[in-house]
């Protein structure tokens, strides 16, 4: 393992915020590159969305009066609320990472618990959204991109939740301390990424 004595190294504030002052472990590098590849994956989906939307004469609603995002957004605070909630859940996740950097396993567990609750609530809201959406995936480019973008984002939220839940359970086995916390830092990075993607997807689907 790389040396853990990083006392004299110049401090990069951004890096020290996200991953601490110690040298990044292989696992963290792996997560960084993995997030690159995930960005490219969502870029592909979003490129498809933009291309189809650009080409379409009429985009949403598909069938008048069935499902109108703008109308929903005006009538309800719900989508915005859950967006804020998901993005804000990056804070307890980062706090969990901060806690474990100081060896505070209890704080970490608390942060993770909050994240898991918020994430689950977000997924439930997405389920509500899907039930609201009274169209099938094959109705047109609008509906298809809607289901795919929200679906793949939801799958990533679910994956993140399972990851965090797994770490949460591992912490009961006495795993993770101030120096052995790569998985927690990686999960934190991933969770930030999931939130950032949602901002983009939400903007495209609901605001644009």
């Amino acid at each position: 393992m790389a040396s853990r004595t990083a006392a004299r190294q110049p401090v990069n504030p951004l890096k020290s915020f996200f991953v601490g002052n110690e040298p990044m472990t292989n696992g963290l590098w792996g997560m960084v590159f993995f997030i690159f590849s995930e960005i490219m994956f969502f870029s592909g989906l979003i490129a498809a969305y933009l291309a189809l939307r650009e080409d379409a004469l009429e985009w949403a609603p598909l069938i008048e009066g069935v499902y109108d995002h703008h109308a929903i957004l005006e009538a309800e605070f719900r989508p915005v609320f859950f967006t804020i909630l998901l993005v804000a859940s990056s804070i307890p996740m980062q706090l969990a990472a901060f806690a474990i950097r100081k060896g505070n396993r209890g704080g970490m567990k608390l942060g993770m618990l909050v994240v898991m609750v918020i994430g689950t609530a977000f997924l439930l809201n997405q389920a509500v959204e899907w039930m609201h959406a009274d169209f099938a995936i094959g109705d047109g480019p609008y509906s298809a991109t809607f289901y795919l973008l929200t679906g793949f984002h939801g799958a990533h939220v679910l994956g993140g939740l399972l990851f965090i839940a797994f770490l949460w359970m591992r912490s009961y086995l006495g795993h993770f301390d101030a120096h052995r916390n790569t998985a927690v830092e990686a999960a934190t990075m991933y969770w930030h990424f999931v939130g950032a993607v949602w901002i983009l997807v939400f903007s495209l689907l609901f605001l644009a």
Binding site: F33, F36, S37, E38, M40, S43, G44, A48
Partner: peptide, 11 residues
């Protein structure tokens, strides 16, 4: 591979 393959996966 890391930057291009995911785009193929999306397609």
């Amino acid at each position: 591979v890391v930057l291009a393959t995911p785009v193929l996966a999306s397609a």
